[in-house]
């Protein structure tokens, strides 16, 4: 028992460190960066990593470290906004569908299942094709893409909570439907929602990178990890740092939030570790 706790703590600690370092990078990037990430320096293109350019420079001589830092800011803010929107709308729709049941539930679930049938990234691509590229449309596209699974999960959590007798007790106490949802249903499904939030964050970071890689994400010259990867592709053979750095950033962040989510789950429900 005691022994089995140790590895869990270790992975939780790692998750916190990974997530914390990403957030720290974003914060530091707001105050200071080694170079301006957008300034072109054609005298030093494709410089190897050195003391001047810690992570080297790209084909236009822009500092890769600075671009990765700005990319972190853009990727993390897009992912945060999209995650918050997904969780907010997903929870609202899931709670309404699961708690009210009846035709509301049937209608919502019909639309939801139809959306669920399409892969999220395909759905996002389609939406961007309609809305055009740009930060707002990416956020919107990713929100819609990841809404359906969240609605499903929240709804099923609500279904199990609404059968509990304290819900009946609330009805007997004369509470209205909205009050019961807010006061009794919501607090009891919060843990799974928070854990789901960390997963959604990971998915969104990945998808945003994928979209940017495909060229429909945040338009250049603004760097994101995805479009840095995309731009690095032609130079992969002799300037490997150009693709390695953003790749590691993406993996670092996604691994971090997933470990963090696992730690959160164990914290809410210690039994799941047994």
């Amino acid at each position: 028992m005691i022994r089995s706790l140790w590895p869990m703590r270790r992975s939780a600690l790692l998750g916190c460190i990974l997530v914390g370092s990403v957030l720290l990078t974003v914060l530091v990037g707001c105050l200071w960066m080694p170079y301006s990430p957008l300034v072109i320096d054609l005298d030093h293109p494709l410089a190897h990593p050195s003391l001047h350019h810690l992570f080297g420079s790209d084909q236009f001589g822009r500092d890769v470290l600075s671009r990765a830092m700005l990319g972190a800011r853009i990727s993390v803010s897009i992912a945060s906004v999209a995650t918050v929107l997904v969780i907010l709308f997903g929870t609202a729709l899931g709670v309404v569908a699961g708690f009210l049941r009846g035709w509301v539930d049937r209608l919502l679930m019909m639309v939801n299942d139809a959306m669920l049938a399409l892969p999220g990234i395909l759905f996002a691509l389609g939406l961007i094709a309609v809305l055009g590229t740009g930060t707002e449309s990416i956020i919107l596209a990713l929100t819609f893409a990841y809404l359906p699974p969240v609605v499903r999960v929240v709804r099923s959590a609500v279904l199990s909570v609404r059968e509990r007798e304290y819900i009946d007790a609330s009805v007997i106490a004369g509470d209205g439907v909205l009050y019961t949802m807010y006061r009794h249903v919501l607090p009891n499904i919060l843990p799974p929602i928070l854990i789901l939030g960390t997963s959604v964050f990971g998915w969104v970071v990945l998808s945003e990178s994928a979209l940017s890689f495909l060229g429909v994400g945040v338009p250049p010259p603004a760097p994101t990890w995805g479009n840095m990867l995309s731009e690095a592709r032609p130079y992969m053979d002799y300037a490997s740092w150009l693709s390695v750095v953003p790749g590691i950033c993406i993996a670092w962040t996604v691994l971090g939030v997933n470990l963090f989510g696992d730690a959160l789950r164990d914290w809410f429900d210690p039994r799941s570790n047994a």
Binding site: E165, Y166, D168, A169, I172, A173, G174, H184, N188
Partner: peptide
């Protein structure tokens, strides 16, 4: 609603685990 009350069989499921005793007991007084 205020004059008819129910005591449930299972005290593990009839009390909201996220509320304190005072809030639970006060619910019908609202």
């Amino acid at each position: 609603r205020t004059q008819v009350q129910l005591i449930f069989q299972d005290p593990f499921s009839s009390l909201d685990p996220r509320m304190r005793v005072a809030e639970i007991v006060a619910a019908p007084l609202r």
